[in-house]
Write a protein that binds this DNA or RNA. Sequence first.
DNA 1: CATACGAGG
Length: 751
Amino acid sequence: MIATKILKQRESLPVFSYRQEIIDAIKKENLLVIIGETGSGKTTQIPQYILEGFENCRLIGVTQPRRIAAITVATRVSEEHGTRLGEDVGYSIRFDDCTSSKTRLRYMTDGVLLREATLDTQLEQYDIIIVDEAHERTVETDVLFGLLKATHRLRPELKILIMSATLNVEKFSDFFNGCPIFFIPGRTFNVNINHHRDAKISSLKSTYVQRAVETALYVHTQESPGDVLVFLTGQNEIDKACRDLIAREKDLDYRTDVKYADEVRGMVVYPIYSTLETMEQKAIFDDPPRYTRKIVFATNIAQTSVTIPGIKYVVDSGFVKQKSYDPTTGMDALLVVPISQAAATQRAGRAGRTAPGKAFRLYSRESFEKLDEETVPEIQRSSLLSTVLSLKKMEIKDILNFEFIDPPDPLLVKNALRQLFLLGAIDNEGKLTSLGDEMSIFPLSPFLSRALIASARQFGCSKEVMTIVSLLSVEEVFISPRTEKKQTEADERRKEFYHPSGDHLTLLNLFEAYQDNGHSREWCRDRYLNHRTLSTAKNIRDQLRELMIKHNIPLISCRKKNSHNDEREKKKRKLNYLDAKYDSIKILESFSTAYYINIAKRHSHRPVFYHYASARSPGNEYVDANSSLLALHISPVSALFPENRVVKMDDLDWVMYHNMLYTNKALMKVVSRVNLEWVEEKLKLFKELENARLDGSSVAKESEDKIVENDSEKNDAKNKEVIEENERKNQRLEAIEAARQRALNRRTVNE
DNA sequence: CATACGAGG
């Protein structure tokens, strides 16, 4: 009975009528692009057709951009196939490998396949690779494209399928040697799109939240029953929009103001964004109470990752919060930017999943037509440090000429190469060193891999560094509450963990305490620590330990003997956890082997710091501490933040920082003290950069030198601009700060 | 004093 039902469901999918044609096409072609619109069933069905139609196929790999997709699709397909999950059909994601020797169809994240490719570039165990959701253009997908194209030359019998939902299909086919395209129509409903009459997107930036609320209210009062999804950009504005809309509803008289008052008599309003613990609160996914309209304010999470059922109306602000990496400064920026046409289309499509719908765009048709056609692929706005190390590990020598479907700015590649050289992962000819080979074992930022290996091979403290590295691989563990009172309390609780050397040891303290308290959720909540984040860090730590054991990298602790006898010492320092338990110098030295690239010296009489060198900006390396004008401040959550009074500022000279955030000033986020003697030898590498030929290409040297020259001239000019702008910014900030101080002093006198 | 859109190993 069940089997018949499943078969009926499978046969009702749009893709079913193309079953034989698809099988024939795959038999004939080793490179194939399949376009399947949302709801066509391509992800679950096509791999099964292969499973059923290709008897000699050993293993099929299907990549997904998201873990959750790999799990749910594999579960579904194993059900349809009539076997247990992990037998014929399984999935493989980080921390969770649900496959066996019997597995012939393996759903996996694109990241997992990429890591497999670093160990076996030919992907020998697979007969067919399917890259699904290719239109999402993750960094991993883009790298896989280049890799698979190269693999096709050496292993032409490997079948490569690219599956995508985009309409802009020729691009994939062009990239894969003009291979055939197979089109499967989808099953979605018509969405009527309404643009604002004249609003330009540039003028919306300061008003879109308010306009989105008004538009949601308009839909609520004027349109027939059906739920509403509103796209905004971030947590703050979503919370505000929810409050505003609820307030506006209070003024409604349903009898006179609401057109469909017979069926629409109330509303429920929900926010949704990734950090929301209430993601598990199912209400968002449930039907609203009868006669009630559900209105959801969402980030981009609702564009691809989360499907909310019952949506009939979409309100599109036209904006998204997007990370972009600036290769000239080496800093990430998180900015609100206009979306692309492709994204706008995808957002609108969310209104047509179960019935015909309507989309309301807060911007005009003219503005829509001026938007970029496609979103800039992630690979063109990310740091390529890890990617380039992986490619080096796969013995791709000339990375500047690696075949990317959309090549990143050469500056991004060059900067990654420079940093890998400074980390010792490649030599001055761009060749992977044995150190670099070892670094590529770990799924970590190469900076952290470097520190971890130093702690194991040189400093005998890899157990502790492994813990700290895990915590540095996850998002912020400290929660910042919204209310002032709770914020003060959170600040207080954090002090329990502060270590006088800075934040690296603070994180170690914190994790030890988390372990000692049985990973308790309650314990975390009381201390304003993010339990979910700490639990991820624990998983990463376990994985790192496994990898170290597997690759014979020593696991050594620098825990001191008799450390339990130092109660008096602890009291003296007013630190109630673990101080003096470890050889903290060794731990910091391990980190300094990588983070010498990020060291800064304190200003002679103010608590601000200046870069020693900026490896990230070509033409600007090896600058003297006093000649670089950008003032670096210590983050307020840091143990070393002056007002936390863990250390005397006069005792601080040099510090190293894990990362930097630029908002209205430059903030160093995870900071520890460092001795200049530890890193003096390393700093000489900056000089060596000048003569190194890292790009691995020796052809056309002369003309290339010219290009480099021009590049660096351009960069010099740009850097000068940046520095001057920063200087002006700092002067303004200093003036404001002085005024604030004067005002404070006056108030104190008055009181 | 004030990051935090989403995803991944």
